[in-house]
Design a protein around this nucleic acid. Sequence first.
DNA 1: TCTGGGGTCCTAGGACCC
DNA 2: TCTGGGGTCCTAGGACCC
Length: 396
Amino acid sequence: MERIIFHIDVNNAFLSWTAVYLLRNGYKQDIRQIPSVIGGDEKARRGIVLAKSPIAKKYGIVTAETLYSARSKCPNLQVFPPNYTFYKEQSRKLYTYLTNYTPVIEQYSIDECFLDLTGTSLLYGNDYVALAHKIKDEIKEKFGFTVNIGIGENKLCAKMASDFEKPDKVHTLYTYEIESKMWPLPVDDLFMLGKSSAKKLKELGIRTIGDLAKTNITTLKRYFKSQAIYFQQASRGLDTTPVLPRSELNKCISVSRTLPYDYTKKEDLEKVLWQEVEEVAFTLRQKKLYAKTIAITYKNNLFKSYSHQLTLVNAICTTPEIYQQVLLLLERSWKNDAIRNIGVRLSDLSQQTYQQLSLFESSTSKKEDDIERVMDNLITKFGKNSIMRASSKEKK
DNA sequence: TCTGGGGTCCTAGGACCC
DNA sequence: TCTGGGGTCCTAGGACCC
């Protein structure tokens, strides 16, 4: 059966949401109408563009460039800090509202989702463009921000369509429109085809998505291995992946931090790692998960990234147990270089409710897990400062 | 005061087993 | 004593997404 998929994308999400927040709190100007960006804290060395207004875009400002560079393109640029708590709330409200139309929603990110409306014509009729306009306008009225809606017969086409012209627009990319609407676009515009693949394709003389669609698969395979098949299928608008609610089961939980200056002392790195372990371990336990693989990630002053990981026999979840492994990893992997960014990642997650005790392991781990859970509950109820372990005090 | 943070997926190579 | 080959698990690194 032919499918009908919508892709909904909040226009300049962080900037729009901040605009809504500011207007609601008495700010006189709509920052969507001026040259503005949402940017990280430059003093904390996080000074990059997270979102931009349409006028800022006209100045050539792009996402992820430094604020320094953005200002050089537009001297009267206004910079606002991100408000993640508010963003998450807006995102949740939007998705809750969209479940009115279909239960088959895949939340792709904080500001993007797919809706499967296949078989809903008895409910909404056959005019999907009209339906999309209705949803789009309701969102604008109800929440105060605009979205783009792309309509297609699969997720790929819907996603490509929502990207066409912004903001506040509805576009279709039906099978019969692929040649006219998608083939003239540069290969970089194809979803999941990034910079490094685009560069290789250009060297092969493949510039547009149409060129890619017409390229011999054997040639593509020589350069792109298994990716070649995806590229060719996608360039022809083919995609059979289903709209699936994001699995509750995370594949990994991670945290990383850019440090205020480059750290060269082990004790300093250990202090940051302790805080990071507390964070990821807390999230892990909130999700009632255990982790078997623990990793440490670095970025040094030369922007070189590296990482180190280990896999345990038994999955763990307490902060001290994880920290112990992280210290081991630090010992084994840190190259004594100046560290700009350091992080902790937990993966190989399971919902295992019992721990298989290895022969020589004490049976106290269950008790320790319970103590941690009691502490977590206190934190949830009374806040972070309500409780602190003795060892964490000295590390602050 | 130049270059964030949280994810998923893939690949190559080594260890180890039979 | 001249050195096969398939399978699995693990790690590091990289591409790509928002």
